[in-house]
Write a protein that binds this DNA or RNA. Structure first.
Lengths: 256, 256
DNA sequence: ATGCATTTGTTCGTATGTATC
DNA sequence: AGATACATACGAACAAATGCA
């Protein structure tokens, strides 16, 4: 029989990784809990400390636990984090597995959804936060493009949070970050940067107005249109057509 | 003393992880290349073999390298994969404390986007794959609901792949799985199951027709509407309103 | 404040099974 | 078939850091 022995072809340390992962999913292990020390884990799972450590290195990389010299009471169970998603998406984009077109096309979907939901659910406090952000953004034009970019990210993150959907929020945040990383390698000259920043400020104002007026349709359409106008020139013709389709998905624009 | 702080607070094995990661990003290491053996890595980076192994376990978990007993010529550098994204996203959705409403609302966005893109990009082969899936699905009604659910997932996965966007694909796939896991705990009686399956078959036929006709607007609208009709009764009033908004985001439906 | 016990970080040596030449 | 090289895994050891009586 070629059936995997399930214990023999997998490495020993997987027993610990699988246990911890499952225990966290089922809620048996909660953030703040402590795992047994390396030696105790070795006893309970019947393996050497070196193997326990391999398991801990993997769990640590998943950001499920923290294991440091100061954790003398045992490895600490961490809250679920978006870090691994962020890192793996970043790896995919920087190593060539994901192009700008795919990222922007997804942003057209995610940002539009975020704006639509935020227009309905936003609180007045979040509106104030957006206004503060826009004020700082106007000031940062004089400072520089990287500073401006961070505030731009923050603007969208406020909206994503206001949307009240963790998936839209996290996926959107991660994708925006990836696009920024990808774009920052293409050096723009100072004039282009200034033009882009001023255009961005106008766009944010328009989105703010739509969200303030609870006009979700308009807010989502604005997201798609501005992404198209920013990035259409940076992708090839086929992807540009797709992006055009995504712009007009919503009936808010041209009705023949 | 001259103890470098930047080197002492990070563990030794990070030197190897960082080197390999950077080398892959810069293209210095390509898929198919071989890393030095564990012993040689230990010599070059001046660390013990146990530390080298911790590094390899992390790199392995990132799916950047494969290190097995058969790889006698050294650890194999792998092609960039979406696996880590899928795994980390799955962890977030299964253990992130997400409710049905959030998952379904995101599906309304992701599935709609997948259908829209698939309508434009689908190949004839993918159309055939969808037809085969629908045939098997009709047969599986007699077999049982769990069997049917797997084919239902597969139907959407074919579309997600046809959409030609890895992010839409991965996020959508994982979210659909999460919804299924959440729903399968609510036991439906046999009549309900049958009604649901027949409704699902009709819906898939409609989506297929739209994608075949390259009518992306219709395909995306169908996705939103059917998700609303499936799940609206299972969420509270506030979330139901949000879902209704998402349905009408697209101009394809009611125009006053 | 001072040891004492415990934990992690790291290294080294060794044994075993396996795949390749 | 035998020799070699490899990964897997174990265990012992010591330094450094930390918490506690």
């Amino acid at each position: 029989m070629t059936t995997e022995a399930a214990d023999s072809d997998r490495r020993v340390f997987h027993r610990i990784v699988d246990y911890v992962q499952k225990a966290i999913v089922t809620g048996e292990l909660k953030p703040g809990d402590r795992l047994p020390s390396e030696r105790e884990l070795g006893e309970k799972f019947e393996m050497a400390r070196t193997s326990v450590r391999e398991a801990l290195r993997v769990l640590e990389h998943m950001e499920l636990v923290r294991s440091q010299p100061r954790d003398t009471r045992g490895p600490l169970v961490l809250p679920i984090s978006a870090g691994p998603v962020r890192r793996s998406v970043a790896m995919l984009t920087t190593a060539g597995g994901l192009g700008l077109a795919e990222l922007v096309q997804f942003r057209m979907v995610a940002d539009a959804a975020a704006n639509l939901l935020a227009a309905r659910r936003r609180s007045d406090e979040q509106l104030v936060a957006l206004e503060r952000n826009m004020a700082r953004m106007r000031q940062s034009i004089a400072v520089g493009y990287t500073e401006f970019s961070l505030l731009d990210l923050q603007f969208h993150e406020i909206i994503a949070e206001a949307a009240g959907n963790k998936l839209v929020q996290v996926y959107g945040d991660v994708t925006r970050e990836a696009v920024l990383n990808l774009i920052q390698r293409t050096i723009l000259d100072a004039d282009d940067q200034n033009a882009l920043m001023r255009q961005s400020v106008r766009h944010h104002r328009a989105v703010f107005n739509a969200i303030e007026a609870r006009d979700g349709l308009k807010a989502s359409r604005l997201a798609r249109e501005s992404l198209y106008s920013y990035y259409a020139d940076h992708v090839d013709a086929a992807d540009r057509e797709i992006m055009a389709d995504l712009v007009h998905e919503c009936g808010g624009t041209a009705l023949p």
